[in-house]
Design a protein around this nucleic acid. Structure first.
Lengths: 112, 112
DNA sequence: AAGTTGATTAGGCATTCACCTAAGTATAGA
DNA sequence: TCTATACTTAGGTGAATGCCTAATCAACTT
């Protein structure tokens, strides 16, 4: 039972690898074939396939096969949960920092 | 030699755990002691300490000890690189989706 | 039909991860 | 000074991760 929390785990875990981030970035520009995605990496194909499967199992990308080539595409909203969490965090501590900033300014003013 | 890329790896890896995300979220509200952070988790302290050390090694949090308690705080810009990468990705594919959307609209219009 | 190519399956191996228990150390309080 | 508290160190275990090679399958191509 993958709840929302476990899902976030998976998305961040998936992003913690250059190969997988490359796939996401590349597919952001449009669908691409498996071997084209793998090409820049000095890695055996089966190893690269694992990365693709991780992303696919997380629901971040999809694929379909036609002939003997498999084409991958981005699932548009696969990254949203991850980005949401991060920006929420930032909004919490940045407002806290703003208040701190205010405080420092006031201290400075009261000095002079 | 931790380059920018390896650093991103580390940040995402660090976020791929409920315990560690809890720490980030909690410290976003202000500095807190180690045992307070650990309290909600059913986990031995040494295990929890590992999570804190992972975050600290990544430069996402800092700590200092006074007396026998250690207090952790957020390092304000520790999450920025992760958020930047994500929002950049989104901007790429969302503009692509917008163009697709336009295309579909035009197709629909030309039908009628 | 035979060869080549793109992808897949199977299985193996080293490393890292996420936990644990047990045994410290150092400070605070009675 | 004794004891409780807050954390730390050391060491061990099972599962997951990230890579590999070898073999196979399923289209194309010739």
């Amino acid at each position: 039972m993958p709840n929302q929390l476990a899902k976030l785990d998976g998305v961040y875990q998936a992003l913690a690898s250059p190969a997988r981030r490359h796939v996401i970035a590349e597919l952001g520009r449009g669908p691409t074939t498996m071997s084209a995605l793998a090409e820049p990496f000095d890695m055996a194909l089966p190893s690269f396939l694992q990365h693709l499967q991780i992303l696919e199992n997380r629901g971040m990308i999809t694929s379909s096969k036609s002939g003997r080539t498999r084409t991958y595409s981005l699932v548009p909203h696969g990254l949203v949960s991850a980005e949401d969490w991060l920006s929420e965090q930032r909004s919490v501590w940045s407002s806290r920092l703003d208040r701190l900033d205010d405080l420092l300014h006031k201290l400075k003013e009261s000095e002079s």
